[in-house]
């Protein structure tokens, strides 16, 4: 394992020290490992709290700031944060208008956020609503399973619900935006390599030079199937077609098309992939309203990408274009 680290056990704490040093506009609670907006809590504004395992940067800590999250809890690498952290975050962003928890659908994240909401309810009158993202079409959903994973849509949701909260919409409306975004978005990912968890010290799975995993998540878990490596134009079809067949995306006001890097793939390849994705969308009669290309939800050093499509209307496009100022996303300011 070759990594820019001091000690595998200190990776999360050391990275948070770096965020604090690089972004004085944020306030970082190192004891609870929570990244706060410097001006939190904002009186009268709905607070947005997210969080999850570390190793997905810039998500979630890098999305804290004006127009997006008010606080993000950092767990250990690929491990949900604990309820104490979420309680501290929720209290710290409560400006009297309630708090929205943005939770990715993983067993641990859901259970820890549930326990945190129970603790907040027992301790204070803060109203908390949780919205769970589950947009990954690689996972077969069923009543009897953990359900689909929350992946790329989470990034778009944090931007859009964050903009709605910044406009001063009440908690119920911000939560409606969040639920709509989750319902109208779908994703699919693939990996060219495994990732290496610092504490494990070696790649999570072996992937031969001429093979790739289709349907991966963001924690180094293998995908649903392993196939021979193919040109980008074929990979784009393997990713976009299951997304298009899961939800009707043609017609209406178009989509936000998001090509996300998983951490080990250079931007030149992501743009190359975007060209192929745009070609498949055009062929399928899907209009692209806005696009996002880059590594926003990563899986440590995994090479690969995911494609997310989100069906949008005028309101969502307007919320997308609204100003945002965070370490990871920044425009209009």
């Amino acid at each position: 394992m070759k990594k820019l680290i001091n000690d595998p056990a200190d990776v999360v704490a050391d990275a948070l020290r770096g965020m604090a040093a690089a972004h004085p506009e944020l306030r970082i609670d190192h004891e609870n490992r929570v990244v706060f907006r410097g001006d939190a809590p904002r009186q009268g504004k709905v607070g947005l709290v997210s969080g999850g395992g570390s190793g997905h940067e810039p998500m979630h800590g890098g999305f804290v700031g004006m127009g997006m999250l008010d606080a993000a809890c950092a767990g250990e690498v690929f491990t949900s944060p604990v309820p104490d952290q979420m309680v501290a975050a929720t209290k710290g962003v409560d400006g009297g208008a309630g708090v929205l928890h943005v939770v990715k659908n993983y067993t641990g994240d859901v259970m820890n956020f549930e326990m945190a909401a129970e603790l907040v309810a027992a301790e204070s009158g803060t109203e908390v609503v949780a919205v769970v993202t589950d947009d990954d079409v690689a996972v077969q959903d069923s009543l009897y399973t953990a359900g689909r994973r929350g992946v790329g849509v989470t990034v778009l949701l944090e931007k859009l619900a964050g903009a709605a909260a910044e406009e001063g919409r009440p908690l119920a409306e911000v939560a409606d935006v969040a639920r709509t975004v989750n319902a109208q978005g779908r994703s699919m990912g693939m990996a060219l390599t495994s990732c290496t968890v610092p504490a494990a010290g070696k790649p999570t799975f072996d992937l031969p030079e001429d093979e790739m995993e289709i349907g991966v998540g963001i924690h180094g878990e293998p995908g649903r199937r392993r196939v021979k490596l193919a040109p980008a134009r074929e990979i784009a079809e393997m990713l976009v077609e299951p997304v298009l067949s899961d939800l009707e995306f043609s017609g209406g006001d178009g989509v936000i098309a998001f090509v996300n890097g998983l951490g080990g793939t250079p931007l030149i390849e992501l743009y190359l992939m975007y060209a192929e994705v745009a070609r498949v969308l055009e062929k399928s009669g899907v209009t692209v309203a806005r696009s996002l290309v880059g590594s926003y939800m990563t899986s440590l050093d995994m090479a690969g990408c995911s494609v997310t499509l989100l069906k949008v209307d005028d309101d969502l496009v307007r919320l997308w274009d609204a100003p945002v100022r965070t370490p990871g996303l920044r425009w209009g300011v």
């Binding site: 395992g53 767990g75 491990t79 949900s80 604990v82 309820p83 993983y106 067993t107 641990g108 820890n112």
Partner: peptide, 9 residues
């Protein structure tokens, strides 16, 4: 308080 993930809860 210390474990997180699914194992903690």
């Amino acid at each position: 308080s210390k474990v997180g993930g699914a194992s903690g809860p």
